[in-house]
Each structure stands twice: as C-alpha cells, then as structure tokens.
Amino acid sequence: MGTQATAAEAREKPGLGQVLHDTRFVFWREMLLPLRDPFSLIFSLIQPLVFLGLFGPLLGAAVGAPAFGGQSTLQWFLPGVVVMIALFGTSMTGSNLQYELMTGFYERILATPLSRSSLMIGRALKEWAPLVVQGLLIALVCIPFGFVFYPLHVLLGLIILGIFGIGLGALSYALALVSQNKEWIFWGVQQTLLFPLMILSGIMLPIEAGPAWMKTASLFNPLTYLVNAERELFAGGVGTDTLLGLLAASVTAAVGLVVGVKAINRNLN
C-alpha cells in the first residue's frame, strides 16, 4: 500500500467547515438538473403569478382592506405567496429521494465521505434556490400595481426562508426515509400537515379574522412567525417580528437536521 494519501483521505475531520464544503457539491449536483433543462424553471415562475393574479383580487374584495393593518392587499399578500412557494418547494425535498432510494443512488451517496447533514442541506437549498428568482420576479411584476419594493429587506426575508427551508427540507428527507417502500405515506403526511400549517399561519387569509381558538393555535405554529417576519420585511421594516421569524427558522433548521441525521443513521441498524 502506498503512503500517498488520496484527496478523500486528506479531508478534514467532520465539522461545520466540512458540512459547508460538502453542501456546496450536493447543492451543485442537484442544480445541474434545472440548469441542464431550464424549462422546469419557467413553469415554476408562472405558478406564483397565477396565485397573485387570481387569488389576490378576490382576497381584497372578500376581506376588505381594513383587515390588512393599513397595508395594500398586494403588500400584505405577496410575502405570503413567497412563503407558500418556499413551503411547497422545500417540503418536496424528500420526494426526489424516494425514487433514488429504489435505485442504487442513495446507497452510493451514503458510501461516499459526504457529511450526512450536507446531503439534506444541499437538497433543501436546491428547492429554495428558484425562490430567489421567483421572489424577485413577482416583486418586480407587482410594482406597477402599487407594491413598494425594498430590495435589501426582501433579500433578508429570502435568507430567513432559506434557513427555514433547510429545516423543512431535512424533515421531508427524513419522512421519505421513514416511508421507504410506502410512497403513499410520504404524500399523505406531507399533504395532511402542509395545509393546516399554512392556514393557521395566516398565509392565505388574515388569522385575525378567525375565532379565538385559531389565533391561539397559530401561536404554536412556527410558520406564523415566519409569515409575520416576511410581512414586516416586505413592508420595509426590521423589528421584533423579523427577529422572531429568524428564531423560528433557526429552531426549525436545528430540529430538522437532528431528526434527519437520526433518520439516516436509523437505516444503518
């Protein structure tokens, strides 16, 4: 056996640096799919516009402007749409994995020295990345309709969504692993959880308009803090709501990664 160490053997010990390093490549591999076939991205741009164009006017007419705390309907609704796209995208992280569990891909990746966290973070970020383009595009489209665009605030909002997306993506990844060979469980759980969480966060309709128990329930929903933070940021403010949103996103990320790594390791037994 030669004494010359290969590149892989010279890797640092697992740590944050290694996770970031590995995440870069996992993310980059995933990004090759949309980059090689950009058509998929075009469709993902249409979806939020449909929501804004068709749901927004109805919302304004049905609920009335006073419910939005003095903001225009658009200013209130747009951040919600952005959160919703992030939610749909990153909660799907596990669905691609499901397919790859059936082929030998997942096993091949597990046999590489890549850190376990990076497998989930890289994939969650791939689902989040189009959001940057989507978010900026819908913001620009809405400017003529009275939306006031604060670029730096929106950017910070997207970063917070990215942190949240890592957590949700990791949970989705774990769900795919747990429901291995039973795909319907993955979809059942994902759909069953997603909609109540969305409605109880006030994404679509203001929660203030609902009964007291709903308002109480929304306080236990991390998504509520996220939506509030985005609304504050999109309106050009940075304050308590932003901080609480960042906190909720960080907690979600931490919990998601712990659960995700546990799920990966559980499969080794």
Binding site: A7, A8, A10, F25, V26, R29, R108, T112
Partner: peptide, 8 residues
C-alpha cells in the same frame, strides 16, 4: 460530481 464528493 462523484469525484468532487471525494475531494477531487
């Protein structure tokens, strides 16, 4: 990408 995963 496989090579990159191994640090090449």
């Amino acid at each position: 990408m496989q090579g990159r995963f191994y640090g090449m």
